[in-house]
Design a protein around this nucleic acid. Sequence first.
RNA 1: GCCGGAGUGGCGGAAUGGUAGACGCGCUCGACUCAAAAUCGAGUUUCGAAAGAGGUGGAGGUUCGAGUCCUCUCUCCGGCACCA
Length: 816
Amino acid sequence: MNPYNHKDIEQKWQKDWEEKGIYKVSDEVPGKENYMALVEFSYPSGNLHVGHWYAFAVPDIFARYKRMQGYNVMYPMGFDAFGLPAENAAIKLGRDPKVWTYEHMETMRNQLRSMGAMFDWSREVVSCDPAYYKWTQWMFTEFLKNDLAYRAMTKVNWCPKDMTVLANEQVHDGKCERCGSEVVQKDQAQWMLRITKYADALIDDLKELNWPEEIKSAQKNWIGRSEGSEIEFQIKDSEAKIKVFTTRADTLFGVTYVVLAPEHPLVEVLSLNVKNQADIFSYIDESKKKSELDRQQNKEKTGVRLEGVFAINPANGEDVPVWIADYVLAGYGTGAVMAVPAHDERDFEFARKYNLSIKRVIGGNTNHGNVPTEYRNDPSHYLKNIVTAKDFCFTEDGPLMNSGDFNNISSQEARTKITEFVGGKLVKTYRLRDWGISRQRYWGVPIPIVYDPEGNAHPIPKEHLPWLLPTDVDHTPDGTSPLARSKELFERTEKIFGAGWKPEVETMDTFVDSSWYFYRYLDPKNTEAFCDKEKMNKWLPIDLYMGGAEHTTMHVLYSRFWTKALKDIGLVNNTEEFIIRRNRGLILGPDGNKMSKSKGNVIDPDEIVQLLGADTVRMYLAFMGPYGVTTNYPWDPNGVVGVRRFLERVWRLKEKVKDVNYQTKTPVLLHKTIEKVSEDIEKFKFNTAISGMMILLNFWEKEEVVPIYSYKIFLQLLAPFAPHMTEQLWHELGESSSIHLSTWPKYDESLTQDDEITVVVQINGKVRAELLVPVDIEEAEVIKLAVTNEKILPWIESKEIKKTIYVKGKLVSIVL
RNA sequence: GCCGGAGUGGCGGAAUGGUAGACGCGCUCGACUCAAAAUCGAGUUUCGAAAGAGGUGGAGGUUCGAGUCCUCUCUCCGGCACCA
């Protein structure tokens, strides 16, 4: 027998497939339905790691299965090729970001080919290609025309020494991670995209999508719609009013102070006449150094009181003190809150720390917002008077004191009524903010804007797109965008638009590139449109989108927004393009930690492919655990050898294959296996699909002869997992066309049933015996067998049987 | 802190509310071998000689029956808007 030589086999078939073009996808195949299976395209970091294999090779199993089932499947690949690492290579190594990126892509293409995936490379999409970003730019100008893009000031983390904007993750304890300088919050003009316009649609349209609930919840919570009230607190002896946002207007009678965010515009006005002005200014300075994340984190709450300033509670006319505290965020709601320490955990903590009054509102439906139980249940802990249900309730004329029963209305009704009573209004707010896309970076899509001599912004007309990224730039950071130093860009602008015109020097966030790349796969070479509408009709919406859990709230949400915006402009047909979304987990190092060079636990897939073959690596990754859940799996060097062993046993089994009809129990087990493998693949449970095939193999190894017909079906089941080896065996058995073009086997329902089954007998929930019975046995019969079973008799003798339960084909439960 | 997820043998994991641990790894013993590797066979949740009992992060609850459902809780992982 020829040995299983994975290197020869894999090379041979990869070459053959490419020559025959069996993975080339047409837009239409008569009699076949189109199916688009999408995986997130890859950043060209330079080297394929195991995570890439997990992301691309395992979904390839599913794509191949769908194809054998008779679908015309597109499983495309491309590169998300703009981004910071290329720019860092420029800064640190003096490399040209473009050359660096294209070299990496070439390496990765070759590595990707070694997977034996069914990528159609003729559809490849590269986001840094001007032919692609022309359309990114064009869409931006369309957004601008449709009031979906605008310019606004936002706060950014700024390192004064490095003169650069920092991501939150680059700021540690308020200091720059590179140089340790104190980071400040700086105002920066940015191009913004109006994602908040779609906040409701982004929540409401989730209903129609076949996504796991956890992904939907994560997005809903990220958008953070809350329905509440805006209520004004007049400042005592002043015309000024503080507008607060609250979801708990029903607790208005429990307000004991009001808090403003340090950035709130009223702070400046109100602090003019207070005694502790110096404290206030120093507090504001301190809070400017903190990032938003720091401010929300589990650190002790801080604040400072505006001495002598009181706000008037519109519900009862009480004076309450006004504080400034950075646990209130300027960007959320109105940047001011009414504090009800008895019903809100954060207010409670703050009130305890600064010894402020705590006043409780009691009513049947008034919840306590996580305030600790001992305070909830023991009124003696409250520092001030308690407002009880009897003190106020609502009638049609508004709140009345000392009458009626507050418990009769829901807290939502209470909120509505009290809001009306104090002249506030019901509003919706969102945690979601508009999307700032300006970056002071080089390696990104140039924002297609020019400024006239008066400084007004104008979109660059379509005929001048792509608006090319200039190449004459110095990458050394100096606080300005690298494009600001391109002579060519400024000259080009003046040449086209006239003297005194200046280009925008910022580039776009790379999430913009990845918001629409899937459209381009359908029509990657089109120079007239980003994608032909007819082709969209044929392929969209996308049947399946698999990707990393880390993209749940950002990339996937941005993409959904992009589709909705394009739909409103009339450029696409659907409001949602991802019918099914599945997230995957991570592959960890053998030590259970995230792979990293510093930990020395990195697995190099190229090495293992050399040693054991691509089929083994694909299959091991599929075997580790269910796909489409966010569990992380450690790479086990022994485990991968076990899978290799399985493939070798399949290889060796061909020695037993005979052209006979003689079969023992094979038909039942074979048809059960077809059923199991098919169902498990549908559910992304590739691990149990493989285990099903192992069980069949284990059985056959004990047989003298394996019928050729059955073995070929087995190879077809295995083909999506181990495409090279099965192709080889398929041809050795005399087939001349590719196994991957063959049709997925069907199982015969009648052949998946055994005639005898095991029924267990439980006594008070404990298994005491097993019965082997005919599959169609009647309940009375099986119970008779159970109570007369010799293992059961000692347990039930001299006891009364209270009841018996028969679960068909499973168990008899005897209750004593 | 907020949002989302996950905890089952030595390890990865399996299990429509119905025999917990399929399948694989590892390990133990045996066969083959001068020997080793490879391969094949048997065994492998814990305690116990056995009968049996315990056991799915922890504490309660619902049920004839709970890994699965409910309440509370602990630990770990992912995301938090300029990494992608």
